[in-house]
Design a protein around this nucleic acid. Sequence first.
DNA 1: TGAATGACAACCC
DNA 2: CGGGTTGCCATTC
Length: 100
Amino acid sequence: MSPFTAKVIGIIRTIPPGKVMTYGQIASLAGSPRGARQVARILHSMSKKHKLPWHRVISSKGEISLKDDEQKMALQFEGVKVTNWSINLSQFQYHPDKNA
DNA sequence: TGAATGACAACCC
DNA sequence: CGGGTTGCCATTC
């Protein structure tokens, strides 16, 4: 467990319903702008052990990676329009408040 | 300790 | 615009 991992988890937990974040964005906020893959690995490995809203984490193209029906339905339920596994980032990507 | 992996991202053709 | 390849970096074996 590295500070990066803990930070990534913390960031994911801050994603509000109806919003999504990309791996690269999360990785960047976590301190590793190139660590998008680690974010993916963290989700893959820790999501079950943590109560992370991993379904709000998508690829930079605004698409669901797993193409999991549960994830898609969860997002739609929160208000995110998921069209053919794609999401309108400009409309649903979450921009964290630097003021926090 | 060293090598391989991976829910990605960016670049090139 | 679409498809394929390379780079990145922490985690895992």
